[in-house]
Computed example of a mutant assay.
Amino acid sequence: MAWTKYQLFLAGLMLTTGSINTLSAKWADMFSAPGCSNAPEHGFSHPFLQAVFMFLGELSCLAVFHILLCHDRRRPTPTVEPGESFNPFLFLPPAICDMAGTSIMYVALNMTSASSFQMLRGAVIIFTGLLSVAFLGRRLVASQWIGILITILGLVVVGLADFVSGNTDGGHKLSEVITGDLLIIMAQIIVSVQMVLEEKFIYKHNVHPLKAVGTEGFFGFVILTILLIPMFYIPAGNLGSNPRQVLEDALDAFCQIGHKPLIVLALLGNTVSIAFFNFAGISVTKEISATTRMVLDSLRTLVIWVVSLALGWESFQGLQILGFSSCFWERDFTTDSTNP
């Protein structure tokens, strides 16, 4: 069946904003500028502050939901289902998972390439599938188990490509790249818990997806913003990539932004793109199918890889083609139509 213009628009919006989201986060990591108190020029390494901006983008989905709801009420026949009332604190556990997983991934993105980062995120398929069996009582069909095995193969190939190449194009040591890859895998375990919790709550309470994303964004934004205060004083040793070597130095980040305002553009790109990406992803699932959403997510990996090569952020590695191919095929298997 041919797609409508609106469906094509949604697919293009999801692919574009999803790619911008990862690329803008990586672009922010590549800036360097002086810090506070005449601190020498250093890299913009502020993963927790970047996560705060990302949650601000998710929080905007809540505002969009209420705007759509108010606009819809003026129509003779409303089309937006507000969903039943629920306790917002139900979404606190998935919000905490989102906060932890996102923060870890932003730390990892500082250590590895944007393309490897995006490919390794495919590990969420493995852990989500296993947790769905354990806690949601699902039964995975043979094609879905094949998809999980292909995913594992793809992760091994991507990790091997990073190990063989050293992935030092961005000035990263091999030890940093390996640590970053492992952190991404660890984050996917947390994200898979988040996805299982979200699915359980959304279906049980008939929550509108935009409202769910926005509620999580609210909790994540408030909690992580408050946590920036103790992080300012917690020593992190070599893990702290700021002059004071603390867990997060938000003041240093704003001083760097003052010296190099272009950083704001990268942060805004991350904030705005995550809001549109969530909207487009939910709409693609509703208007087309979840399978199409997963395929578009696979294409996003290709776009990020090609753009990174074009910008000179990384060099060509043949093994990454095999890794990308496996990431694409595993989604083709794991998004089987029998999946509820």
Rank of each mutant, 00 (worst) to 15 (best):
G12D: 00
L15G: 03
I20N: 07
T22F: 02
S24R: 06
K26D: 10
A28S: 15
F31Y: 14
G35C: 11
N38W: 11
S45M: 15
F48R: 05
L49G: 08
L49E: 14
F53I: 12
S60C: 14
C61M: 06
A63Y: 11
F65E: 01
L68F: 08
L68C: 13
H71M: 15
R75S: 15
R75Y: 06
P78Q: 06
P82V: 12
E84Y: 04
F86G: 02
F91G: 00
L92K: 00
M105I: 01
Y106R: 01
M111E: 03
S113G: 07
S116H: 13
Q118A: 10
L120F: 08
L120C: 02
I125G: 03
I126M: 10
I126F: 04
T128D: 05
T128P: 02
F135V: 08
G137P: 01
R139F: 11
L149D: 07
G154I: 06
V158S: 03
V164I: 13
T168H: 07
D169S: 06
E176K: 12
E176S: 14
T179R: 09
L183M: 14
A187W: 02
Q188V: 00
V191Y: 11
S192Y: 04
Q194A: 02
Q194S: 12
V196P: 01
V196Q: 00
E198K: 02
E199P: 00
K200S: 05
Y203F: 12
Y203L: 09
H205S: 01
N206F: 04
H208I: 08
H208A: 08
K211M: 12
A212L: 07
F218R: 13
F218K: 09
G220Q: 05
I226E: 09
F232T: 13
F232N: 13
F232M: 12
Y233W: 15
I234D: 04
P235A: 01
G240K: 12
Q245F: 11
Q245G: 06
L247H: 06
A253Y: 12
A253I: 13
F254Y: 15
I257M: 15
K260Q: 15
A266I: 03
L267T: 08
G269F: 13
S283Q: 08
T285K: 03
K286M: 00
A290R: 06
R293E: 06
M294Y: 07
L299N: 00
L302V: 10
I304L: 08
V307C: 03
L309D: 05
W313R: 11
F316V: 09
Q317D: 03
I321C: 05
C327S: 09
F328I: 02
S337R: 09
P340L: 07
